[in-house]
Design a protein around this nucleic acid. Sequence first.
DNA 1: TTAATTTTTTGACTGTGGTCACAGAATTAT
DNA 2: ATAATTCTGTGACCACAGTCAAAAAATTAA
Lengths: 233, 233
Amino acid sequence: MKKECERCTDNLCAKKVGIFSNITNDELVDIISMTGHMEYDKDENIFLEGDKSDTLYIINEGKIKLFKITKSGKEQILHILSEGEFFGELNLIKAGKYHFHARAVTPVRLCTLTNEDMKNIVLKRPEIGLKVLEVVGERLSKLETMVQTLATNDAEARLASLLIQLSEENGKRTSQGIEIRVPMSREDMSNLTGVARETISRKLKKLEDQGIIKVIGSRKIVIIDEEELHDYV
Amino acid sequence: MKKECERCTDNLCAKKVGIFSNITNDELVDIISMTGHMEYDKDENIFLEGDKSDTLYIINEGKIKLFKITKSGKEQILHILSEGEFFGELNLIKAGKYHFHARAVTPVRLCTLTNEDMKNIVLKRPEIGLKVLEVVGERLSKLETMVQTLATNDAEARLASLLIQLSEENGKRTSQGIEIRVPMSREDMSNLTGVARETISRKLKKLEDQGIIKVIGSRKIVIIDEEELHDYV
DNA sequence: TTAATTTTTTGACTGTGGTCACAGAATTAT
DNA sequence: ATAATTCTGTGACCACAGTCAAAAAATTAA
């Protein structure tokens, strides 16, 4: 269950966030004093699309996903975010409604900051605003790439881009290639790429038959021929 | 051809931009003094993906599109922007490279602001940073919806969402429904939705046969049954 | 105006990938 | 341990929409 938790150990929350780096200790203490603290179990919803949005969430521990649900009940994942990243209401001028769902994919500890507080922080320290803008710009860029991939590529290419992205985020170079500890189920892979779960299986097999990747169980994939994989995208 | 144009009449550029509203006249004059001024013909490129990015562009007159090109040469439109909107490098901390192309779709007059200048403006007037964040947040939201539409909907639903979006942006209510003066070719509609040009034609016809819309020539569409159209999405 | 070019529509064909159904693996509970 | 549940892989089927080709319509040039 969702519950308010005691202040994070060592008040880590704000410290580990990029947007609050390069800040004096006094100011940091100031910011931390404004934060709330919550923890959620795996698979718990943090908020739903349409909920009144007045909070910015900072991930202290764990992973969350932002996603939408179509009329037909299909889930489309927009982002998966981990420790140190933030999400929630970015419009600091006027609070509105969230336009996506947020759910814990592992147990998570979150620090919260109200819209209003965040706004005051930015007004006082505008360079924090620039940092936020930087992160949001990156997210924008990622979504733009996603739009292109979804609109113009076939199932195989979509899967290839996902594998490349995963290898960049969770890949470890070994003697036989880049080893990915896949941080999600086949279903999640489906919900990220818009490709049916069954097709994900089939295409993984095809890539394996071609010697481009090696699938070990369901949570490990080794990219053998990086070149070739890039050529799909 | 691209050319540097004389200062915009009345220095309109900065005035008509939402992010520079609620600002003193002195400051506005200050900002305007930093701007450069360019004009481009229809179909001219303003910048290409990969170009060094150090400029923020403000549209004074005309329309531009931001798009990507796939390996196979397909164009994917990300945004179409008009007068008063801005685009370009949003990361004010460190300039990088543009990750999309920008092209004039009508003759345009642009005001330009360097990264560095914009950064200083925001540091001096942090509420402008908040405004920028507001706009970028909206753009993020639009892309998120686009991702969902592209990943989970069939051709008909994608077209329906485009029509709804166009009706919101360019629709006029008349006695027979919402009249849209379509501001783009069928090909552009294809490049926005990722649906083949031919399929756009076919689906428009189908919607017309069902009495949901009326297609008048190639640049006018009347939405007759708004309800029904929404049900597709 | 007619001619030339571009844009849009229509037709026929085909392949990709979605869906459904079920079997096999893997994980979790008892 | 066995049972129960969840997750993943495979086969069969077929509809949607992409592609190619060509006609029709609209726009532009002469």
